[in-house]
Nucleic acid binder design. Structure first.
Lengths: 255, 255
DNA sequence: CCATAAGAATGGTTTAACCATTCAACAAGG
DNA sequence: CCTTGTTGAATGGTTAAACCATTCTTATGG
């Protein structure tokens, strides 16, 4: 066999017993042999099953917990419960990358801009009459909140609209990615951004435009409008950030 | 204070010593008090510093390792080394979501399609003369590979071109996301897709088109062409998948 | 100069015990 | 009968001390 095509061997793994146990349990979960909600046997029993010490077993459980595959509960009737894989791990990892300077908030904002555009485009291509009704109902609600000057309630509705558009787009990864990005970016803008009446009016107009484009299946418009919407937001973030320079001394990198 | 606006309390955390240790070490790493490449003291020393047992400390280290913040080496001079946050964790988590059926391969393919479009668009907006030279050099190389019918080498070059476009786009998150998605999708198509001469010709044409659009700063064209490129790929994957139905019985969900 | 063996440093694992939290069953008092 | 408090068992969380396995360095001998 030529050296070029030789199967890409894996480095021989050091015998780490806990890793083997992690793999076995993880397989069982991904297999559906263990389903979400199922409980693993108590530690002292599992210990015997695998024929390892409790300490080693606990290292395995810690890893599975950190992967988001199980949750560990205390007390009688407690133990390891199989979980549904959610977005918490992605959110946490992305958060680490931001905080460690591997990613800048600008990067994330720009990513979000493109992504929200694509989501709006898909939504415009796939929205049913039912979806439109639901969206317009939410927009009406947002308009009411704007009239009343209820900032908190407006923001909630705004978020609900974005979530609904994500649902309509019909792609789970876009939905998760949007949530992960949002959860991470929110940590920063929550501290920064005050929401004035003018800002609400502006936002409401954006939302109306996007929903109209979705209703009329103008997917290109929906994408552009959603992008502009996020872009305006990103600009404000940058203004804020450079004005309050102390927050982030190293050129957009967070500390 | 009204019940509506009551601060969003956190559930009281159970006293888990190892978690506290994880937080302290993680803070030190994100602080840059501990920098990538630095080594933590040996377990027996850390044990004393935190005044906990070795078992508990080891659970902490396992968690940090799983988060991708440290790497643990064996033997004399071994120990915990601080790592740069990379994409491995994201890749792994996304892989878990695919395997557990939370995401379908279609979802990922569609996501990738939109994302590669955005990346190409950014690249078209930001490419310098230097970048263009490098890209065209790679395209020439790919053309040579096509002529020679060297499939492996062509695929390598193809990937290099995509990577270069990602670099030119200048957004770290797009770059990471592309890699994560690619690494996960590759697991499936590597098994499936045979690469014929015709396929290579087709791909080469796509690449030439995209690079030309980038050179001439036709960012809209660059986006569309890149999307089409991925879309064609996605279609082939779906064909393959439905033909070899046994692989995935539950409607596009992987088992 | 190189090969090999011995030893030390370090992570990996085991054992056995005890502590802390939770829940259910049961008892006491109203 | 219902409420309230008590107790005990089940389970995860932590500790301690020892030993095993891997890796690197150093000494030894050819």
């Amino acid at each position: 066999m030529s050296p070029k095509k030789s199967a890409d061997f894996q480095q021989v793994k050091k015998s780490r017993i806990f890793q083997d146990v992690v793999n076995q349990i993880q397989e069982a979960i991904l297999n559906r042999t263990l389903q979400p909600g199922d409980m693993l046997p108590p530690e002292r029993e599992l210990r015997e099953t695998f024929n390892i010490s409790r300490g080693t077993l606990r290292e395995s459980l810690r890893v599975l917990e950190q992967k988001g595959l199980i949750e560990i509960r205390l007390g009688t009737g407690g133990g390891a419960v199989v979980k549904n894989a959610g977005t918490e791990q992605l959110t946490e990892t992305l958060g680490l990358m931001i905080r460690s300077g591997t990613l800048s908030v600008q990067d994330i904002g720009e990513f979000r801009q493109g992504m929200e555009g694509q989501i709006a485009r898909l939504a415009a291509q796939r929205a049913t009459a039912d979806d439109i009704v639901r969206l317009e109902c939410l927009v009406d609600k947002a308009a009411a909140m704007t009239d009343k000057g209820a900032v908190e309630a407006f923001l909630d509705t705004d978020q609900a609209i974005h979530k609904e558009i994500g649902r309509i787009a019909g792609n789970a990864l876009y939905r998760y990615a949007a949530q992960v990005v949002h959860d991470n970016i929110r940590k920063y803008y929550d501290d920064f951004l005050e929401f004035t009446q003018e800002r609400m009016d502006e936002n409401l107009l954006d939302l109306k435009g996007i929903v109209a484009a979705i209703r009329e299946q103008r997917h290109q418009d929906a994408a552009s409008l959603a992008e502009q919407h996020v872009h305006r937001f990103n600009l404000r973030m940058q203004e804020k950030e450079s004005r309050a320079g102390s927050y982030c001394p190293s050129g957009g990198r967070l500390c």
